[in-house]
Amino acid sequence: MSAKRFTAFVLGVLVLFGPTFAGTARADDPVDAGPVEQTPLGPITALDRELLVKVRLAGLWEMPMGEEAKTRAASQRVKDVGAQLASDHMFLDERVVRLAGQMGVALPDDANADQQSWMAEMRSRTGPAFDDSFANRLRAAHGSIFPVVGTVRANTRNEAIRQFAQVCNQIVLKHMTLLESTNLVDDKGLSKPVAAGAQPVRGAVDADPLPTAQVVGPTGPSPLLVLLMCLAGAVVTIGILRLLRPKANVK
């Protein structure tokens, strides 16, 4: 291939794929984790603080309900899962309280309104009805916090928070697996967590969007725009090649 034809080919490729490259570059955009605050254990962001608060809130209702599953549940499997969840959240709660104290992060002392409604629902039930509520309420809650933990684990600049998020990640995944092992998790457990009495949005899993930190996701051109770019690139490439084609000698 001659130098002129190679140049034309490169120009055509740039016209054809250049906008697509620009669109996919946003996949590496950083997470906006909010303002940074200095603590005795290093800098933390609003996203780091939020993880500590969410883990504390989880323990405030999952520990007591795990304990109550021992007497309210009909299934021995639910009883065993409840005991394991209560034990693990006691472990996490001790560590989150200590870590938050060292960093000067205020933690709640009571479960939030949604969590209190879930506890009230479960406490009004026994036997199979309790089992269903327990498995689905806790599976939905764990599915909601799981992506939050992963985001902090991947993006925090604080080593203590990273180690804590690593432990949380393993435990939350373990709990989702345990809850699913009851064979009671249905659409309610795989949907956005809602207050007791509210209708779940079936099939629409909520990743618990963070109010204080937003993850900038990848964006790209629409399919129609991609098609138009492809056509434009092809036309430009053909036109350039024709311009650079050696002219036949006229005798």
Rank of each mutant, 00 (worst) to 15 (best):
V105D: 07
I161D: 03
R95S: 01
V236I: 12
E159H: 08
L107K: 08
D29P: 02
F146I: 00
Q76D: 14
R153Y: 15
A234T: 14
T71Y: 04
A234W: 15
F17N: 00
V36T: 15
I161Q: 02
G233S: 06
N169G: 10
M176T: 01
V226A: 08
A204H: 11
A165R: 05
A73T: 02
T182E: 07
T177K: 14
V13K: 09
R56D: 01
A106N: 03
M90W: 03
V53K: 14
G197R: 07
D208S: 09
G189N: 06
V216T: 13
V53A: 06
V167G: 05
L190S: 11
G34M: 03
H89Y: 07
D48L: 05
A248P: 09
V105E: 08
L184D: 05
K70T: 10
K79V: 04
G150T: 03
F134S: 10
D208G: 09
A129P: 03
A135V: 11
V15D: 00
I171C: 00
L184C: 06
M65L: 15
G189C: 04
G150K: 14
V167Y: 03
P246E: 15
F17L: 14
A27W: 11
T45I: 05
P200N: 05
V31P: 07
F9H: 09
A58E: 13
D32Y: 02
P30Y: 14
L85D: 03
L190Q: 12
A27I: 13
Q166F: 04
D131L: 06
L92D: 03
L173K: 11
A248W: 09
A129Y: 00
R162C: 02
R162E: 10
L227T: 13
R153Q: 12
Q170M: 12
V194Q: 07
R125Y: 11
L224E: 10
V31C: 03
S222V: 02
V96A: 01
G150A: 10
N249L: 15
V96H: 03
A198D: 14
I161F: 00
E159Q: 12
T151G: 00
C168F: 02
R202Y: 10
D80V: 07
